[in-house]
Write a protein that binds this DNA or RNA. Structure first.
Lengths: 200, 200
DNA sequence: ACCTGAACACCGTTCAAGT
DNA sequence: ACCTGAACACCGTTCAAGT
Protein backbone atom coordinates (compact mmCIF):
# COMPACT_ATOMS: atom_id res chain seq x y z
CA UNK A 1 0.00 0.00 0.00
CA UNK A 2 1.89 3.07 -1.21
CA UNK A 3 1.89 6.13 0.98
CA UNK A 4 1.89 8.39 -2.05
CA UNK A 5 -0.20 7.64 -5.09
CA UNK A 6 1.16 7.87 -8.59
CA UNK A 7 1.18 11.65 -9.10
CA UNK A 8 0.83 11.30 -12.86
CA UNK A 9 -2.32 9.19 -12.61
CA UNK A 10 -4.94 11.95 -12.55
CA UNK A 11 -3.56 13.59 -15.66
CA UNK A 12 -3.32 10.26 -17.42
CA UNK A 13 -6.90 9.41 -16.57
CA UNK A 14 -8.16 12.77 -17.71
CA UNK A 15 -6.37 12.39 -21.02
CA UNK A 16 -7.71 8.88 -21.42
CA UNK A 17 -11.27 10.02 -20.82
CA UNK A 18 -10.95 13.01 -23.13
CA UNK A 19 -9.56 10.87 -25.92
CA UNK A 20 -12.41 8.41 -25.58
CA UNK A 21 -14.98 11.20 -25.47
CA UNK A 22 -13.55 12.83 -28.56
CA UNK A 23 -13.78 9.56 -30.44
CA UNK A 24 -17.39 9.05 -29.38
CA UNK A 25 -18.48 12.62 -30.09
CA UNK A 26 -16.90 12.44 -33.51
CA UNK A 27 -18.79 9.25 -34.20
CA UNK A 28 -22.21 10.13 -32.86
CA UNK A 29 -22.25 13.75 -31.70
CA UNK A 30 -22.41 15.13 -28.19
CA UNK A 31 -25.99 14.44 -27.26
CA UNK A 32 -26.18 11.00 -28.79
CA UNK A 33 -23.21 9.59 -26.95
CA UNK A 34 -23.82 8.33 -23.45
CA UNK A 35 -21.51 8.36 -20.49
CA UNK A 36 -21.62 4.59 -20.61
CA UNK A 37 -20.22 4.65 -24.14
CA UNK A 38 -17.41 6.97 -23.15
CA UNK A 39 -16.65 4.69 -20.22
CA UNK A 40 -16.55 1.64 -22.46
CA UNK A 41 -14.22 3.39 -24.89
CA UNK A 42 -11.98 4.56 -22.04
CA UNK A 43 -12.19 1.18 -20.25
CA UNK A 44 -13.22 2.76 -17.01
CA UNK A 45 -16.33 2.72 -14.83
CA UNK A 46 -18.82 5.60 -14.49
CA UNK A 47 -17.79 6.09 -10.92
CA UNK A 48 -14.17 6.54 -11.94
CA UNK A 49 -15.09 8.97 -14.71
CA UNK A 50 -16.94 11.22 -12.29
CA UNK A 51 -13.86 11.30 -10.12
CA UNK A 52 -12.09 13.22 -12.90
CA UNK A 53 -14.86 15.21 -14.53
CA UNK A 54 -17.78 16.75 -12.74
CA UNK A 55 -20.26 16.26 -15.57
CA UNK A 56 -20.74 15.47 -19.21
CA UNK A 57 -20.80 19.20 -19.95
CA UNK A 58 -17.47 19.50 -18.20
CA UNK A 59 -16.01 17.08 -20.71
CA UNK A 60 -17.24 19.07 -23.70
CA UNK A 61 -15.82 22.20 -22.16
CA UNK A 62 -12.40 20.58 -21.87
CA UNK A 63 -12.53 19.45 -25.48
CA UNK A 64 -13.70 22.87 -26.62
CA UNK A 65 -10.79 24.64 -24.98
CA UNK A 66 -8.34 22.13 -26.41
CA UNK A 67 -9.65 22.67 -29.91
CA UNK A 68 -9.43 26.44 -29.60
CA UNK A 69 -5.90 26.26 -28.28
CA UNK A 70 -4.95 24.20 -31.30
CA UNK A 71 -6.45 26.66 -33.75
CA UNK A 72 -4.68 29.49 -32.01
CA UNK A 73 -1.29 28.05 -32.68
CA UNK A 74 -1.79 29.73 -36.04
CA UNK A 75 -1.74 33.08 -34.26
CA UNK A 76 2.02 32.78 -33.97
CA UNK A 77 2.38 32.53 -37.70
CA UNK A 78 0.34 35.69 -38.00
CA UNK A 79 2.83 37.72 -36.00
CA UNK A 80 5.70 36.68 -38.21
CA UNK A 81 3.80 36.77 -41.49
CA UNK A 82 5.17 39.03 -44.17
CA UNK A 83 1.81 40.11 -45.51
CA UNK A 84 -1.14 40.76 -43.20
CA UNK A 85 -3.84 39.49 -45.50
CA UNK A 86 -2.04 36.24 -46.27
CA UNK A 87 -1.41 35.70 -42.59
CA UNK A 88 -5.08 36.16 -41.82
CA UNK A 89 -6.08 33.79 -44.59
CA UNK A 90 -3.82 31.14 -43.11
CA UNK A 91 -5.27 31.74 -39.68
CA UNK A 92 -8.75 31.28 -41.08
CA UNK A 93 -7.70 28.07 -42.79
CA UNK A 94 -6.32 26.65 -39.55
CA UNK A 95 -9.42 27.56 -37.57
CA UNK A 96 -11.83 26.19 -40.13
CA UNK A 97 -9.83 23.01 -40.45
CA UNK A 98 -9.83 22.43 -36.70
CA UNK A 99 -13.63 22.22 -36.75
CA UNK A 100 -14.13 20.59 -40.10
CA UNK A 101 -14.03 16.85 -39.75
CA UNK A 102 -17.28 15.02 -40.25
CA UNK A 103 -18.60 15.29 -36.73
CA UNK A 104 -16.68 18.18 -35.21
CA UNK A 105 -19.15 20.30 -37.09
CA UNK A 106 -21.87 19.41 -34.62
CA UNK A 107 -19.37 19.80 -31.82
CA UNK A 108 -18.84 23.44 -32.74
CA UNK A 109 -22.47 24.36 -32.20
CA UNK A 110 -22.66 22.16 -29.12
CA UNK A 111 -19.83 24.16 -27.62
CA UNK A 112 -21.69 27.39 -28.19
CA UNK A 113 -24.95 25.99 -26.89
CA UNK A 114 -23.14 24.74 -23.83
CA UNK A 115 -21.38 28.07 -23.28
CA UNK A 116 -24.71 29.87 -23.45
CA UNK A 117 -25.65 28.29 -20.14
CA UNK A 118 -22.32 27.49 -18.55
CA UNK A 119 -20.71 30.74 -17.38
CA UNK A 120 -17.42 28.99 -16.65
CA UNK A 121 -17.08 27.80 -20.21
CA UNK A 122 -18.29 31.14 -21.56
CA UNK A 123 -15.65 32.93 -19.55
CA UNK A 124 -12.92 30.57 -20.71
CA UNK A 125 -13.92 31.08 -24.32
CA UNK A 126 -14.04 34.84 -23.82
CA UNK A 127 -10.53 34.77 -22.46
CA UNK A 128 -9.19 32.91 -25.48
CA UNK A 129 -11.14 35.19 -27.75
CA UNK A 130 -9.56 38.23 -26.16
CA UNK A 131 -6.09 36.86 -26.78
CA UNK A 132 -6.85 36.21 -30.43
CA UNK A 133 -8.38 39.67 -30.81
CA UNK A 134 -5.35 41.39 -29.33
CA UNK A 135 -2.92 39.45 -31.47
CA UNK A 136 -4.82 40.24 -34.63
CA UNK A 137 -5.13 43.90 -33.68
CA UNK A 138 -1.38 44.02 -33.11
CA UNK A 139 -0.76 42.51 -36.53
CA UNK A 140 -3.02 45.12 -38.09
CA UNK A 141 -1.21 47.92 -36.29
CA UNK A 142 2.12 46.59 -37.44
CA UNK A 143 0.95 46.29 -41.06
CA UNK A 144 -0.47 49.78 -40.92
CA UNK A 145 2.99 51.24 -40.35
CA UNK A 146 3.97 49.80 -43.71
CA UNK A 147 0.86 51.12 -45.41
CA UNK A 148 -0.89 47.75 -45.39
CA UNK A 149 -4.04 48.97 -43.67
CA UNK A 150 -6.29 52.02 -43.53
CA UNK A 151 -4.64 54.68 -41.41
CA UNK A 152 -7.90 55.57 -39.67
CA UNK A 153 -8.86 51.98 -38.93
CA UNK A 154 -9.82 50.97 -35.39
CA UNK A 155 -7.72 47.83 -35.22
CA UNK A 156 -9.36 46.34 -32.13
CA UNK A 157 -12.76 46.66 -33.71
CA UNK A 158 -11.62 45.33 -37.07
CA UNK A 159 -10.01 42.35 -35.34
CA UNK A 160 -13.25 41.53 -33.61
CA UNK A 161 -15.23 41.84 -36.81
CA UNK A 162 -12.84 39.42 -38.49
CA UNK A 163 -13.18 36.89 -35.67
CA UNK A 164 -16.93 37.27 -35.73
CA UNK A 165 -17.09 36.55 -39.43
CA UNK A 166 -14.73 33.62 -39.00
CA UNK A 167 -16.99 32.03 -36.43
CA UNK A 168 -19.94 32.67 -38.68
CA UNK A 169 -18.22 30.97 -41.60
CA UNK A 170 -17.27 28.01 -39.43
CA UNK A 171 -20.86 27.66 -38.29
CA UNK A 172 -22.19 27.71 -41.83
CA UNK A 173 -19.77 25.04 -42.88
CA UNK A 174 -20.87 23.01 -39.89
CA UNK A 175 -24.49 23.16 -40.97
CA UNK A 176 -24.31 23.00 -44.72
CA UNK A 177 -20.80 22.03 -45.75
CA UNK A 178 -21.48 23.35 -49.20
CA UNK A 179 -18.12 24.32 -50.58
CA UNK A 180 -14.49 23.22 -50.29
CA UNK A 181 -12.54 24.74 -47.45
CA UNK A 182 -10.37 26.76 -49.80
CA UNK A 183 -13.44 28.57 -51.12
CA UNK A 184 -14.44 29.64 -47.63
CA UNK A 185 -10.92 30.84 -46.97
CA UNK A 186 -11.05 32.86 -50.17
CA UNK A 187 -14.28 34.50 -49.03
CA UNK A 188 -12.73 35.39 -45.72
CA UNK A 189 -9.69 36.76 -47.52
CA UNK A 190 -11.87 39.02 -49.63
CA UNK A 191 -13.58 40.29 -46.52
CA UNK A 192 -10.28 41.01 -44.80
CA UNK A 193 -9.01 42.78 -47.87
CA UNK A 194 -11.99 45.11 -48.11
CA UNK A 195 -12.07 45.74 -44.41
CA UNK A 196 -8.41 46.51 -43.90
CA UNK A 197 -6.69 47.56 -47.06
CA UNK A 198 -6.76 50.93 -48.74
CA UNK A 199 -7.40 51.06 -52.49
CA UNK A 200 -8.12 47.38 -53.20
CA UNK B 1 -70.91 13.43 -31.17
CA UNK B 2 -70.00 15.60 -34.18
CA UNK B 3 -69.27 13.89 -37.46
CA UNK B 4 -66.63 16.45 -38.30
CA UNK B 5 -64.23 17.74 -35.69
CA UNK B 6 -63.50 21.39 -35.24
CA UNK B 7 -61.19 22.04 -38.21
CA UNK B 8 -59.46 24.92 -36.41
CA UNK B 9 -58.56 22.81 -33.39
CA UNK B 10 -55.19 21.44 -34.58
CA UNK B 11 -53.88 24.88 -35.41
CA UNK B 12 -55.15 26.26 -32.13
CA UNK B 13 -53.48 23.48 -30.17
CA UNK B 14 -50.20 23.92 -32.00
CA UNK B 15 -50.21 27.62 -31.27
CA UNK B 16 -51.08 26.99 -27.66
CA UNK B 17 -48.18 24.56 -27.27
CA UNK B 18 -45.72 26.83 -29.05
CA UNK B 19 -46.67 29.77 -26.89
CA UNK B 20 -46.19 27.74 -23.74
CA UNK B 21 -42.87 26.38 -24.96
CA UNK B 22 -41.62 29.83 -25.83
CA UNK B 23 -42.45 31.06 -22.35
CA UNK B 24 -40.66 28.11 -20.73
CA UNK B 25 -37.59 28.32 -22.97
CA UNK B 26 -37.31 32.01 -22.29
CA UNK B 27 -37.45 31.31 -18.58
CA UNK B 28 -35.16 28.35 -18.30
CA UNK B 29 -33.61 27.60 -21.68
CA UNK B 30 -34.30 24.68 -24.01
CA UNK B 31 -32.55 21.86 -22.22
CA UNK B 32 -33.67 22.80 -18.75
CA UNK B 33 -37.36 22.86 -19.54
CA UNK B 34 -39.16 19.56 -19.49
CA UNK B 35 -42.06 18.40 -21.56
CA UNK B 36 -44.03 18.21 -18.36
CA UNK B 37 -43.45 21.92 -17.75
CA UNK B 38 -44.57 22.82 -21.24
CA UNK B 39 -47.65 20.70 -20.73
CA UNK B 40 -48.43 22.42 -17.45
CA UNK B 41 -48.04 25.84 -19.04
CA UNK B 42 -50.19 24.82 -22.00
CA UNK B 43 -52.74 23.02 -19.76
CA UNK B 44 -52.56 19.88 -21.77
CA UNK B 45 -51.35 16.32 -21.18
CA UNK B 46 -48.13 14.83 -22.58
CA UNK B 47 -50.15 12.48 -24.73
CA UNK B 48 -52.00 15.39 -26.29
CA UNK B 49 -48.77 17.31 -26.90
CA UNK B 50 -47.30 14.41 -28.84
CA UNK B 51 -50.35 14.37 -31.02
CA UNK B 52 -49.31 17.77 -32.37
CA UNK B 53 -45.53 17.67 -32.23
CA UNK B 54 -43.40 14.63 -32.88
CA UNK B 55 -40.70 15.53 -30.39
CA UNK B 56 -39.20 18.21 -28.22
CA UNK B 57 -36.74 19.00 -31.01
CA UNK B 58 -39.68 19.45 -33.34
CA UNK B 59 -40.96 22.19 -31.07
CA UNK B 60 -37.67 24.09 -31.11
CA UNK B 61 -37.60 23.79 -34.87
CA UNK B 62 -41.03 25.37 -35.13
CA UNK B 63 -39.99 28.24 -32.85
CA UNK B 64 -36.75 28.69 -34.77
CA UNK B 65 -38.53 29.06 -38.08
CA UNK B 66 -41.03 31.47 -36.58
CA UNK B 67 -38.28 33.68 -35.24
CA UNK B 68 -36.47 33.73 -38.56
CA UNK B 69 -39.64 34.58 -40.40
CA UNK B 70 -40.14 37.52 -38.08
CA UNK B 71 -36.63 38.83 -38.62
CA UNK B 72 -37.08 38.51 -42.34
CA UNK B 73 -39.98 40.88 -42.40
CA UNK B 74 -37.23 43.47 -42.42
CA UNK B 75 -36.19 42.20 -45.83
CA UNK B 76 -39.12 44.03 -47.33
CA UNK B 77 -37.88 47.31 -45.99
CA UNK B 78 -34.56 46.59 -47.60
CA UNK B 79 -36.04 46.41 -51.08
CA UNK B 80 -37.69 49.77 -50.72
CA UNK B 81 -34.87 51.45 -48.82
CA UNK B 82 -33.40 54.55 -50.36
CA UNK B 83 -29.84 53.86 -49.31
CA UNK B 84 -28.41 50.34 -49.35
CA UNK B 85 -26.20 50.67 -46.31
CA UNK B 86 -28.94 52.14 -44.15
CA UNK B 87 -31.29 49.41 -45.25
CA UNK B 88 -28.78 46.76 -44.30
CA UNK B 89 -28.18 48.35 -40.92
CA UNK B 90 -31.91 48.25 -40.23
CA UNK B 91 -32.05 44.65 -41.28
CA UNK B 92 -29.25 43.84 -38.88
CA UNK B 93 -31.01 45.66 -36.09
CA UNK B 94 -34.19 43.68 -36.64
CA UNK B 95 -32.38 40.35 -36.73
CA UNK B 96 -30.34 41.06 -33.64
CA UNK B 97 -33.37 42.27 -31.78
CA UNK B 98 -35.32 39.14 -32.61
CA UNK B 99 -32.75 37.04 -30.76
CA UNK B 100 -31.86 39.45 -28.03
CA UNK B 101 -34.18 39.02 -25.12
CA UNK B 102 -32.75 37.52 -21.98
CA UNK B 103 -33.18 33.88 -22.82
CA UNK B 104 -33.54 33.85 -26.60
CA UNK B 105 -29.78 34.14 -26.61
CA UNK B 106 -29.43 30.54 -25.54
CA UNK B 107 -32.21 29.64 -27.93
CA UNK B 108 -30.14 30.89 -30.86
CA UNK B 109 -27.29 28.48 -30.20
CA UNK B 110 -29.74 25.69 -29.39
CA UNK B 111 -31.28 26.13 -32.80
CA UNK B 112 -27.92 25.75 -34.47
CA UNK B 113 -26.97 22.78 -32.33
CA UNK B 114 -30.28 21.18 -33.17
CA UNK B 115 -29.91 21.90 -36.88
CA UNK B 116 -26.48 20.27 -36.87
CA UNK B 117 -28.15 16.93 -36.30
CA UNK B 118 -31.64 17.41 -37.64
CA UNK B 119 -31.47 17.50 -41.44
CA UNK B 120 -35.08 18.65 -41.70
CA UNK B 121 -34.44 21.74 -39.61
CA UNK B 122 -31.13 22.35 -41.38
CA UNK B 123 -32.88 22.26 -44.72
CA UNK B 124 -35.61 24.60 -43.55
CA UNK B 125 -33.03 27.08 -42.27
CA UNK B 126 -31.07 26.79 -45.52
CA UNK B 127 -34.19 27.63 -47.47
CA UNK B 128 -34.84 30.78 -45.47
CA UNK B 129 -31.20 31.69 -45.71
CA UNK B 130 -31.32 31.41 -49.48
CA UNK B 131 -34.26 33.78 -49.64
CA UNK B 132 -32.48 36.35 -47.51
CA UNK B 133 -29.32 36.00 -49.58
CA UNK B 134 -31.15 36.55 -52.83
CA UNK B 135 -33.00 39.56 -51.56
CA UNK B 136 -29.84 41.18 -50.28
CA UNK B 137 -28.00 40.40 -53.50
CA UNK B 138 -30.84 42.01 -55.44
CA UNK B 139 -30.62 45.11 -53.28
CA UNK B 140 -26.89 45.29 -53.92
CA UNK B 141 -27.39 44.95 -57.65
CA UNK B 142 -29.99 47.68 -57.60
CA UNK B 143 -27.75 50.01 -55.60
CA UNK B 144 -24.87 49.30 -57.93
CA UNK B 145 -26.75 50.82 -60.85
CA UNK B 146 -26.78 54.06 -58.89
CA UNK B 147 -23.10 53.81 -58.06
CA UNK B 148 -23.74 52.66 -54.51
CA UNK B 149 -21.58 49.54 -54.73
CA UNK B 150 -18.36 48.34 -56.32
CA UNK B 151 -18.99 47.67 -59.99
CA UNK B 152 -16.95 44.44 -59.89
CA UNK B 153 -18.57 43.09 -56.75
CA UNK B 154 -20.02 39.58 -56.72
CA UNK B 155 -23.32 40.46 -55.11
CA UNK B 156 -24.34 36.89 -54.21
CA UNK B 157 -21.07 36.32 -52.42
CA UNK B 158 -21.14 39.67 -50.68
CA UNK B 159 -24.69 38.99 -49.50
CA UNK B 160 -23.62 35.69 -48.00
CA UNK B 161 -20.66 37.27 -46.26
CA UNK B 162 -22.95 39.86 -44.73
CA UNK B 163 -25.35 37.21 -43.47
CA UNK B 164 -22.47 35.18 -42.11
CA UNK B 165 -21.13 38.11 -40.16
CA UNK B 166 -24.61 38.92 -38.93
CA UNK B 167 -25.03 35.44 -37.51
CA UNK B 168 -21.62 35.71 -35.94
CA UNK B 169 -22.50 39.00 -34.28
CA UNK B 170 -25.77 37.57 -32.99
CA UNK B 171 -23.94 34.60 -31.53
CA UNK B 172 -21.42 36.80 -29.76
CA UNK B 173 -24.15 38.88 -28.25
CA UNK B 174 -25.82 35.68 -27.11
CA UNK B 175 -22.71 34.56 -25.27
CA UNK B 176 -21.30 37.77 -23.93
CA UNK B 177 -23.85 40.53 -24.35
CA UNK B 178 -21.14 43.09 -23.89
CA UNK B 179 -22.36 46.14 -25.70
CA UNK B 180 -25.66 47.85 -26.48
CA UNK B 181 -27.43 46.67 -29.58
CA UNK B 182 -26.80 49.92 -31.39
CA UNK B 183 -23.06 49.41 -31.08
CA UNK B 184 -23.27 46.02 -32.75
CA UNK B 185 -25.39 47.49 -35.51
CA UNK B 186 -22.76 50.17 -36.03
CA UNK B 187 -20.06 47.52 -36.36
CA UNK B 188 -22.11 45.70 -38.91
CA UNK B 189 -22.71 48.95 -40.76
CA UNK B 190 -18.98 49.61 -40.94
CA UNK B 191 -18.43 46.14 -42.33
CA UNK B 192 -21.10 46.59 -44.97
CA UNK B 193 -19.68 49.94 -45.93
CA UNK B 194 -16.18 48.60 -46.46
CA UNK B 195 -17.38 45.52 -48.24
CA UNK B 196 -19.77 47.18 -50.66
CA UNK B 197 -19.01 50.81 -51.19
CA UNK B 198 -16.37 52.36 -53.36
CA UNK B 199 -14.29 55.19 -51.86
CA UNK B 200 -15.53 55.17 -48.27
C1' DA C 1 -61.70 12.21 -32.70
C1' DC C 2 -59.36 13.68 -29.03
C1' DC C 3 -57.58 13.29 -24.63
C1' DT C 4 -55.57 11.47 -19.98
C1' DG C 5 -51.95 9.91 -17.12
C1' DA C 6 -49.69 5.89 -15.63
C1' DA C 7 -45.98 3.13 -17.39
C1' DC C 8 -41.72 2.44 -20.04
C1' DA C 9 -37.08 3.17 -21.61
C1' DC C 10 -33.08 5.48 -21.27
C1' DC C 11 -29.27 7.85 -19.30
C1' DG C 12 -26.58 11.13 -16.18
C1' DT C 13 -25.01 10.80 -11.62
C1' DT C 14 -24.24 8.90 -6.93
C1' DC C 15 -22.73 5.90 -3.39
C1' DA C 16 -22.02 1.73 -0.58
C1' DA C 17 -18.82 -1.65 -0.86
C1' DG C 18 -14.46 -3.48 -2.39
C1' DT C 19 -9.09 -3.56 -2.92
C1' DA D 1 -6.37 6.25 -2.76
C1' DC D 2 -8.78 4.58 -6.27
C1' DC D 3 -12.13 1.88 -8.32
C1' DT D 4 -16.61 -0.94 -9.41
C1' DG D 5 -21.26 -1.40 -10.75
C1' DA D 6 -25.78 -1.60 -8.96
C1' DA D 7 -29.18 1.74 -7.70
C1' DC D 8 -31.40 6.28 -8.06
C1' DA D 9 -33.55 10.22 -10.13
C1' DC D 10 -35.19 12.32 -13.91
C1' DC D 11 -37.40 12.99 -18.21
C1' DG D 12 -38.81 12.14 -23.21
C1' DT D 13 -42.09 9.26 -25.27
C1' DT D 14 -45.78 5.73 -25.71
C1' DC D 15 -50.09 3.48 -25.18
C1' DA D 16 -54.15 1.32 -23.03
C1' DA D 17 -58.17 3.16 -21.50
C1' DG D 18 -61.59 6.76 -21.30
C1' DT D 19 -65.17 10.22 -23.34
Amino acid sequence: MPRLADPALPERRRGQILEAARACFRERGFRQTTIEEICAEARISPGALYRYYASKADIVAAIALDARAEAEAALDQLASAEALIEGLAELAGAFLEAFDSERDAALLSDIWAEAARDPILAKALAKRDKIARERIAAAIDKARLAGGAYPALNSEEAAETLLTALEGFALRRALWRAEPLAATVRRFRTLALHLLKPKR
